[in-house]
Each structure stands twice: as C-alpha cells, then as structure tokens.
Amino acid sequence: MNKTTAKLEKNLINALTLACEEFKRWDIGFDWLTHTVSHNRFPDSLVVSCVFVTQTQMQQVLSDSLDVRMRKEIQTRLLKAGIRPKDIRRNVRMDNEEACMAQDGGNWEARLERFRG
C-alpha cells in the first residue's frame, strides 16, 4: 500500500469510526460497521455495511427511514474527510447478525465479499 492509499484508508477509517460511535448512541440495535473497497476504483467501489443485532431491528430502522439518516451521517463524515462518494445509497448497505448466521453460517468475511462493490 503506497502512502497516498494508506492516508486515504486512515481518513476513511477515522470517518467511519465517528459515524459508528454516533449510531451506537441512537439505541436502534446498531452493533457495528465495516467497509470494503478496491482503492483502484475508489470511491465507486466503497461499500459500508451497517450491522444490526437482529433482522427485526434492521427492519424497524428501514421502516422508520433511519437508514436515510444513517447514510446522511456517513456521507457528512466522509465529506469532512475529503472523500466524495457519487451516490451514498449505493455505498451504504444495512445488514444484521441473524441474516449472516442464517445465510453464511456466521462467516462475515464471505458475506462481505458477496456484497463487495
């Protein structure tokens, strides 16, 4: 990883960490987030996965349109870090622990690879 890519990754992680800590304060069942990216196709390849504990919690967030607010928060944090995604709706996805267990046997690495941008 060259210096430019390393700096970009550091800025990306810092921005997403701030968003993650914010979401934890919302008391909506949000558990953690992670990202995948191919730096040679950045920012189009960026996929941020917001993970909830249960399917029901995730569905409630979607029903209440809190996913829109979460995407806005992530976009704001990324913009402050100098990262400009073209369409945040394509860059952020919602997921949950129950679905990963049921569909991928709890293997998050395999699950994230399927949704890689």
Rank of each mutant, 00 (worst) to 15 (best):
G29M: 10
L16Q: 03
L16C: 01
T17G: 03
E97Y: 13
F42M: 08
R89H: 14
A15D: 02
R114M: 09
E109P: 00
A15W: 03
A99E: 11
R25I: 08
Q103T: 10
H35Q: 04
T34V: 00
P85D: 14
K3F: 12
A6Y: 08
I83M: 12
V68M: 10
E97D: 12
E113Y: 06
C100Q: 11
E98H: 05
Q59Y: 08
C20W: 07
S65W: 13
V51N: 11
Q75D: 15
D44M: 04
T34K: 04
E9P: 00
Q75T: 04
D44C: 04
T34N: 07
L33Y: 03
L62R: 14
D104C: 10
R111E: 08
E9S: 11
V47Q: 08
K80Q: 15
Q57T: 02
K80A: 15
S49M: 15
L62C: 08
D27V: 05
G105T: 04
V51F: 08
N11L: 14
K86N: 11
I74Q: 01
L78V: 05
R77P: 00
F42A: 05
L66D: 04
L66Q: 09
W108N: 02
H35S: 03
L33M: 10
N14I: 07
Q103C: 09
L12S: 06
M94T: 01
K72Q: 13
L8F: 11
T34E: 07
N11A: 13
K24N: 09
D104G: 01
S63E: 15
R89A: 15
L79C: 13
T54W: 00
Q75Y: 07
D31N: 10
Q60V: 05
G105Y: 05
V68I: 15
V92D: 02
W108A: 02
A99C: 09
R89Y: 14
T76W: 09
D27F: 00
R90I: 13
I28D: 07
T17P: 01
E97A: 06
N11T: 00
V92T: 02
C20H: 13
W26K: 11
G106W: 01
L12Q: 04
L62E: 13
V51T: 11
F52C: 02
I88H: 08
R25Q: 13
Q103F: 03
L16G: 03
L16I: 04
I74R: 01
L112Q: 09
T17D: 12
P43S: 06
G82S: 12
L33R: 01
K86Y: 15
I88S: 07
D44V: 03
V47H: 05
F42I: 07
W26A: 14
L66E: 07
Q57L: 04
Q75E: 15
I88C: 10
V68Y: 12
G105N: 05
E73R: 10
F52A: 04
T56N: 06
I83F: 11
T54A: 02
T56R: 09
L12K: 03
V51E: 06
R69V: 08
K10C: 00
K86G: 07
K7S: 06
F30V: 06
L12F: 05
V92I: 10
Q75F: 12
N14Q: 13
